[in-house]
């Protein structure tokens, strides 16, 4: 004998059950999956952020809520760190994006040794800044291999200074930032349907026009995103500015300024204020890039990716 299936009482005609109506708006039990992430954000990001924000308005030495900000912007040494950081972060991010594009473009499709090449390009991401810095000192330092070779070949008379200045930090940002940009751009590229370029070819477009008119426009939202992320990475540069830079001069970046205030002068309030300024600048740059991106084509790129 079979038992009768349990029948739920149907609500009035034309009106779906509450559960269905909520599900229609994406509200169902799977929302619980968000809980750990939300909790994490609240505890580890939002709370410290708001705490830091209010701290920055309570200066240690008095002088009103905005005293820290006034100090920062009136001190040319502190104020100058913004320019120094931008001057490192923007070129490094641009360089990483611009160099990744042709390499990733050429490395689409299958060929022998692709996996090995990708591995080689991506390995630096695993090195960590300190190891990279040591390598740079070994390789590019006054007594490093490069300078030895250059001097021995009589290409230069004096060792070239490539570390403990702007270039040391720039190289470090490229070494650690490039694999990241390359991986992102490769994945954006793989989302573009290869038959689009073939179609363009049969219509008479050579490789440059195919890239310029088809691939690049479809890729540019991805480029904008990659630039933003690379920029954020580069803008918060800290260890390499210390290790291979000139931390009290040419690479006195904004994170060093914040560190100096908070952990050397023990002025947490000032440190917080500098961090807030740093966050604001990043937001402005990202805002500008994303605004520019919002004005471009953002729909499907026809691929399976």
């Amino acid at each position: 004998m079979t038992t009768a299936p349990s029948v739920t009482v149907l609500p009035g005609r034309g009106k779906a059950s509450l559960r269905h109506r909520l599900a229609e708006r994406g509200i169902d039990r799977s929302l619980a999956l968000l809980a750990p992430g939300v909790l994490f954000m609240l505890l580890l990001f939002l709370y410290p952020f708001l705490y830091g924000l209010q701290l920055s308005f309570s200066p240690q030495h008095g002088g009103g809520a905005l005293a820290n900000y006034r100090t920062f912007f009136s001190d040319p040494y502190l104020r100058g760190s913004i320019g120094i950081t931008l001057w490192l972060g923007i070129p490094a991010a641009l360089f990483n994006v611009v160099v990744s594009v042709p390499i990733a473009y050429k490395m689409r499709g299958r060929f022998r040794g692709k996996r090995l090449l990708t591995t080689l390009l991506v390995v630096p991401i695993t090195l960590g800044t300190v190891l990279t810095a040591e390598g740079l000192l070994e390789f590019l330092g006054q007594a490093g291999w490069l300078n030895k070779i250059l001097v021995d070949l009589h290409l230069v008379s004096q060792p070239v200074r490539l570390v403990h200045n702007y270039w040391g930090v720039f190289f470090s940002l490229v070494i650690t930032g490039f694999p990241f940009a390359f991986l992102l751009i490769s994945s954006y590229l793989s989302g573009i349907d290869p038959s689009l370029e073939r179609a363009a070819a049969t219509l008479g477009a050579g490789w440059w026009h195919r890239f310029r008119h088809i691939t690049l426009p479809l890729l540019s939202p991805g480029l904008a995103m990659t630039f933003c992320l690379s920029f954020v990475l580069a803008f918060s540069v800290f260890p390499s500015a210390q290790l291979v830079g000139d931390p009290s001069g040419a690479t006195h970046v904004i994170s060093i300024a914040a560190y100096h205030a908070a952990f050397e002068q023990y002025d947490y309030s000032m440190g917080s204020a500098i961090s807030m300024i740093m966050a604001a600048i990043m937001l402005v740059i990202i805002g500008v890039v994303l605004f520019w991106r919002s004005r471009m084509y953002r729909g499907s790129t026809g691929g399976k990716g």
Binding site: D193, R198, A199, A201
Partner: peptide, 20 residues
Amino acid sequence: LPPERRDIGMVFQNYALFPH
């Protein structure tokens, strides 16, 4: 000849229209 110099019009199975 490369495809761009063959002058052969092609209609693709998935249309391959330029989405942008």
